[in-house]
Design a protein around this nucleic acid. Structure first.
Length: 867
RNA sequence: GCCGGGGUGGCGGAACUGGUAGACGCGCCGGACUCAAAAUCCGGUUCUGGCAACAGAGUGCGGGUUCGAUUCCCGCCCCCGGCACCA
């Protein structure tokens, strides 16, 4: 243990030594210990090649919580694995010609090594990778059960189609409506896909948000809005020999409907286009551009009259039927009744195409309806019905009920609940994913692969080239006899959405070695996850799918929980300053912060920034998320090599609370490094004087000692609360630093004082141990600890140490601070007031004025109101 | 466009339940040590005025409630995350 005896701090030698110690004591194995279980989970990484700062931050947060719980005596499971399927591996294959399997596996090997060097208390025996058949076979197995239950089904869906590469594009591969590689205008295409009926679970997914006390309110709000439950009515409008069904949340405004609008993909639109080339052309135009909601919502509203007329179910009036690009086929019925007077989108459309606007809801007193300009109030539901025949005079809610009642009586409508949530399309026209276990037979149709033939293995030697899924050209994969009739048949070549992989990996960590079952009895021992940690960018999709999948597995009788994650912490992003130079054509070259030197003015403000290489200025481009495109990524490995893992961990926990974005600063890392060096030398100086001979007698301490001990125990109380309840590791670290600063100023005068210093160091080392485990382990042993600091227990608060002789109270006059007084805690109001008024500066401000009121907040503040 | 979040010194942030705005760290300024530098240590550091005591202003902008507002309410501006095939 020479590493711990060195007088100066050398993390490069120390950290591997401490890691070896933990490893041989099997400290990270989840099975060890007898305490209550604690499952602490990070969102598993996509193996992109190197660990980036976002990973580093995520896993440090999780490790701090795991180690804190370990020190509380709990049996901790902190696993790690790889979200190993997905698009980047295919892109890398196109760039380098390396098969995605090879690229992915070598990335995993490298990143595993990086994670190990950071000293995370991970149980590596449970590592999983979703690209391994022993994992994804259970995707396939469960998919077949869902197919049997009717939860999985086939229908057509809309995708982005690149007409040049003849391939389906992901939304991120569509840039300004064009394919990223070819630049061709992207088209929408309808293709058959497999879907999961998440809408069957919409109500439950919404209702059970209420039991997720440990989730941030904002995430629950985002999920609730995403599910988007709305109560309204389904209304049928006759149109020639057809019926147009619409869903509306405002049946009370039915008397204000002046036209109908259908999506370009609506069957009625297609029929109308058959005999009208202009309409067909318009539909073709609507088919251009991307499929993403943001694209559709921001495009200019456009429409065309079909010439068809729908019949208003109550008045019998004829309403023109338009095709409109703001009506979505995927929501409701793909058609709407337009009430331009009371819906902003319909209003805008009516103005543009000069369609009638008919006000049917009254406005607040004095307001007159202006049919040229939209006002928020037009969409309100607190007026009463006007211009509405029999319904005139009713409130909106009474009108809602009366109109729905009449529609029901006529068989033309009914009340209905509609969700914004759509069924989950899981088919991807890509190679690097889990094969969908289906065989297409000319005679028998889509036939599920029999269970005994699972897994359907993905061939690992293919290299995508950008022109569609290479599985389509892989005869060895494609050709297979039909399981039903034995005739030659063809495998499905679509693979599963990677969100399928990430929807249950946390269950598999509990039993990764089971090759007979997806999950087993160990799963219920650990689940639900006690603490889940991951990026806020996953607040909706991943977390919703994981909740859904958990309910599916529950309903298959595989697990017995309703919700997978008890507590959720959504960490913020890691940002860094950007620097660039612009050439004559306006093209920007981005420089990494490590290549730039910042010059400061006399006050410490940024004066200029220059490129170290040539000394010429660069332009600061603002603080942005670390990304390749802005070349502002800071490599954690370089910093770990320079300062050691503990310093990097300390700074990333200190610079911001976990939920907020974190701005990276190399200068800040220096500060963390200095603190650890001070901690190291402080303990060594204390131990060099010999450990104290006798136990601490707190009663015998002098005033400075008693004061220090009060600060220590206040610190223990605060830090414990910060770790356990507030999850603000930045303030916990600040409190430890503050206490260390106090301790450094304390001069022990006898052996009892030295016993106090011993109490301080042994406490502080344990308080910081979750954040900087290697340093803490070494110092703990230096201070005489026989076992690991993580087995040493957590320091307790001595309530008697917290008592104060006096407290400082602030004295305000009319809310402005004018002085301070020292009082005995719990002093009576009158006494405090008298003392406050006697204070010189306070008396000056009261002067001859009349005291109107005196507010006393015990032991804190006095406010004297004069006038 | 829709949903969610954020804005506090030169910088990252703190102020937990409406009660001292700026803890802790960085940077900067001054000092000690040194032949010198680095490292380290000590002191100062919201802005304006003042030698100082102290005073005035101040938490994105504009208003409001309150003895008292970074915190609560109303209206705006800017930045960030998500929008169903990036993960």
């Amino acid at each position: 243990m020479t590493e711990t005896n060195s007088e100066t701090y050398h993390p490069a030698a120390l950290e591997p030594a401490m890691q070896a110690l933990w490893s041989s004591a099997r400290l990270h194995r989840a099975e060890r210990g007898t305490g209550e279980s604690y499952y602490c989970l990070s969102m598993f990484p996509y193996p992109s090649g190197r660990l980036h700062m976002g990973h580093m931050r995520n896993y440090t947060i999780c490790d701090v919580m795991s180690r804190f719980q370990l020190m509380q005596g709990r049996r901790v499971l902190q696993p790690m694995g790889w979200d190993a399927f997905g698009l980047p591996a295919e892109n890398a294959a196109m760039a380098n010609g390396v098969p995605p399997a090879e690229w992915t596996r070598s990335n995993i090997a490298h990143m595993r090594g990086q994670l190990k060097s950071l000293g995370f208390a991970i149980d590596w025996d449970r590592e999983i990778a979703t690209c391994n058949a022993d994992y994804y076979r259970w995707n396939q197995w469960f998919f077949l059960r869902l197919l049997e239950r009717g939860i999985a089904y086939q229908k057509t869906g809309t995708v982005n189609w690149d007409p040049v590469d003849q391939t389906v594009l992901a939304n991120e591969q569509v840039v300004d409506g064009r394919g990223w590689r070819t630049g061709a205008l992207v088209e929408k295409r309808e293709i058959p896909m497999y879907y999961l009926r998440i809408t069957d679970y919409a109500q439950e997914l919404l209702d059970s948000l209420a039991q997720l006390d440990g989730w941030p309110e904002r995430v629950k709000a985002m999920q609730a809005n995403w599910i988007g439950r709305s109560e309204g009515a389904e209304i049928a409008f006759a149109c020639a020999d057809q019926v147009i069904r619409v869903f509306t949340t405002r049946p009370d405004t039915l008397m204000g409907a002046t036209f109908m609008a259908v999506a370009a993909e609506h069957p009625l639109a297609r029929r109308a286009a058959e005999s009208n080339p202009d309409l067909a052309e318009f539909i073709r135009e609507c088919q251009q551009g991307g499929v993403s909601e943001a694209d559709i919502a921001t495009q200019e509203k456009r429409g065309m009259d079909t010439g068809l007329k729908a019949i208003h179910p109550l008045t019998g009036d004829e309403l023109p039927v338009w095709i409109a690009n703001y009506v979505l086929m995927g929501y409701g019925e793909g058609a709407i009744m337009a009430v331009p007077a009371h819906d902003e989108r319909d209003f805008e459309f009516a103005l543009k195409y000069d369609l009638p606007i008919r006000q049917v809801i009254s406005l607040p007193d004095g307001q007159v309806y202006d049919d040229r300009h939209w006002h928020e109030a037009y969409a309100a539901k607190d007026g009463e019905l006007v211009n509405s025949g029999n319904y005139t005079g009713l409130s909106c809610s009474d009108g809602f009920a009366a109109i729905v009642g009449d529609l029901e009586a006529k068989g033309a409508g009914q009340a209905r609940v509609q969700f914004r949530l759509r069924d989950w399309g899981i088919s991807r026209q890509r190679y690097w994913g889990c094969p969908i276990p289906i065989i297409h037979c000319k005679a028998c149709g889509a036939v599920p692969v029999p269970e005994q033939d699972l897994p359907v293995r993905l061939p690992e030697d293919l290299v995508p080239d950008g022109s569609g899924n290479p599985l389509n050209r892989c005869e060895a994969f494609l050709n297979v006899p039909c399981p039903k009739c034995g005739q030659p048949a063809r495998r499905e070549t679509d693979t599963m959405d990677t969100f399928v992989d990430s929807s249950w990996y946390f269950l598999r960590y509990t039993c990764p070695d089971n090759d007979q079952a997806m999950v087993d009895e160990r799963t219920s021992e650990w689940m639900p996850v006690d603490q889940y940690v991951g990026g806020i960018e996953h607040a909706i999709l991943h977390l919703l799918y994981a909740r859904f999948w958990t309910k599916l597995m529950r309903d298959e009788g595989l697990i017995d929980i309703d919700e997978p994650f008890r507590r959720l912490l959504t960490q913020g992003m890691v940002l860094a300053e950007t620097y660039y130079r612009e050439d004559a054509a306006g093209r920007r070259t981005w420089f990494n912060p490590s290549e730039v030197e910042v010059r400061r003015d006399a006050k410490g403000g940024v004066d200029s920034a220059v490129l170290i290489a040539d000394g010429e200025p660069v332009t600061p481009g603002g603080v942005e998320k670390m990304a390749k495109s802005k070349n502002n990524g800071v490599d954690p490995q370089a910093l770990v090599d320079q300062y050691g893992a503990d310093t990097v961990r300390l700074f990333s926990m200190f610079a911001a609370p976990p939920e907020q974005s974190l701005e990276w600063s190399d200068a800040g890392v220096e500060g963390a490094w200095r603190f650890l060096r001070r901690l190291w030398s402080g303990v060594h100086r204390h131990v060099a004087g010999g450990l104290p001979r006798s136990a601490l007698d707190a009663q015998a301490l002098g005033d400075p000692g008693r004061e220090l001990r009060r600060v220590l125990h206040e610190t223990i109380a605060k830090v414990s609360d910060d770790y356990a309840r507030r999850l603000t590791f930045n303030t916990a670290i600040a409190a430890v630093m503050e206490c260390c600063n106090r301790l450094a100023r304390f001069e022990p005068s006898d052996d009892n004082d030295r016993a106090l210093v011993q109490e301080c160091w042994t406490s502080l080392v344990r308080l910081i141990a979750p954040v900087t485990p290697h340093v803490a382990e070494a110092l703990w042993r230096k201070l005489g600890g026989a076992e690991s600091v993580f087995e040493a227990g957590w320091p307790g608060v001595d309530e008697s140490a917290l008592a104060r002789q006096t407290v400082t109270m602030v004295v305000q006059v009319n809310g402005k601070v004018r002085g301070r007084i020292e009082v005995v805690p719990g002093s009576a109001r009158e006494e405090v007031e008298a003392q406050a008024r006697a204070e010189d500066n306070v008396a000056r401000f009261i002067d001859s004025k009349t005291v109107r009121k005196v507010i006393v907040v015990p032991d804190k503040l006095v406010n004297i109101v004069v006038g």
